[in-house]
């Protein structure tokens, strides 16, 4: 019993002694810091993603407090609201940036872009890119080994095993730019984020000549320039056999989408414009549904789109119904009616 008592006592004394020593050491070596840094760090999202250019949120907070001009600092995760709040707290002027979203500009799915060889090295885009062209004939497109997926701290980008391409979840994406940096082929771009995740963009980065592109991939931009001609806002430029839609100038009018002969211009979150009467009935974006609805012309177009969405998951995301209802004035009234009927129709057809 005595032994036990002594043991407990000794341990207690030791503990108290150690605590006292620790206290004095902590006092002695305390680092004086601007308390505002802590406050600002709390206001930041705390993702430590590095999207601001600093190693983590602490570094960003430090810079925000210490620098007089913070207009070149921006937290893509927190976005404009977060920056405004911090700027107000610090009494400085915040940078303003419109929301952006990572966009994968490659449409070379397994189906459209056949594999010509088998890569047997480390499954890393960076390693493969420094070795050779990739598993397909396209030297510019997505390699499909998922460096972007590994780089994403928000689980916002995932490989789709069916297409072999990464897909961004726009609701999770914070536009931190980690995937943009990770992609050795520079396939991913941060583009303006429209409401309801709508987007129109050229889903190809190949600078090869048209004939070369067509040989390697059925969904590539061949640089024909049709989209450039049809664009009323001067948003599209074709350079090095590649069209590019300037997200700042684009008004989502979608005329270019119908013009594109290869379907390289991708439309997200909206229905395509109905085709001119002379053109084939269904829009190019949904070739899979073409034969099913060829006869029913414009009226059935949205329905066809639905069917296509089922068959090819990439074609159009879920926001479609809402988008169809809110379709811009340009869309004919008939389409609205069709949109209402839409949910029933696929069952007849499929």
């Amino acid at each position: 019993m005595e032994v036990l008592l002594y043991t407990i006592l000794t341990l207690c004394v030791l503990g108290v002694l150690a605590a006292v020593i620790l206290y004095f050491v902590a006092q002695k070596f305390r680092v004086e810091e601007d308390p505002r840094i802590d406050e600002v760090e709390k206001m930041l999202p705390g993702a430590n993603c590095g999207g601001c250019g600093f190693a983590g949120c602490r570094g960003m907070a430090d810079a925000l407090v210490k620098r007089d001009d913070i207009s070149d600092l921006f937290c893509p995760v927190g976005g404009g609201d977060c920056m405004k709040a911090i700027a107000a707290y610090l009494g400085k002027a915040a940078a303003e940036k419109q929301p952006e979203v990572a966009t994968v500009r490659c449409g070379g799915t397994c189906e459209k872009r056949p594999r010509t060889n088998e890569y047997n090295g480390t499954k890393s885009c960076a390693v493969a890119a420094s070795l050779y062209v990739g598993e397909t004939g396209c030297a510019f497109g997505c390699l499909g080994f998922g460096d972007c997926v590994a780089a994403c701290a928000f689980d916002a980008i995932r490989m789709n095993p069916e297409t072999g391409l990464p897909e961004v979840d726009p609701d999770k994406c914070t536009a931190c730019g980690a995937c943009v940096k990770a992609c050795p082929k520079m396939v991913i771009e941060l583009r303006k984020k429209w409401p309801k995740n709508r987007a129109v963009y050229v889903s190809c980065v190949s600078k090869d000549k048209g004939a070369v592109v067509m040989k390697a991939c059925k969904a590539g931009c061949i640089g024909c320039g049709k989209c450039e001609k049809v664009c009323a806002f001067g948003a599209i430029t074709v350079e090095n056999n590649l069209a590019y839609i300037d997200p700042q100038k684009c008004k989502l009018c979608r005329k270019c989408v119908n013009e594109c002969p290869t379907g390289a211009i991708k439309l997200v979150g909206m229905d395509p414009l109905p085709k001119e009467p002379k053109a084939p009935a269904a829009p190019k974006a949904a070739p899979a549904a073409e034969k099913a609805v060829a006869k029913e012309a414009p009226k059935a177009a949205p329905a066809a789109e639905k069917a296509a969405a089922k068959e090819a998951p990439k074609a159009a995301p879920a926001a479609e119904k809402a988008a169809a209802k809110e379709a811009p004035k340009a869309a004919p009234a008939a389409e609205k009616a069709a949109a209402k009927e839409a949910p029933k129709e696929p069952s007849h057809e499929s």
Binding site: T116, N117, E118, Y119, N120, G121, L131, Y132
Partner: peptide, 9 residues
Amino acid sequence: ANKLIVAPA
């Protein structure tokens, strides 16, 4: 018969 295999040295 098969596709060529590619890997770094």
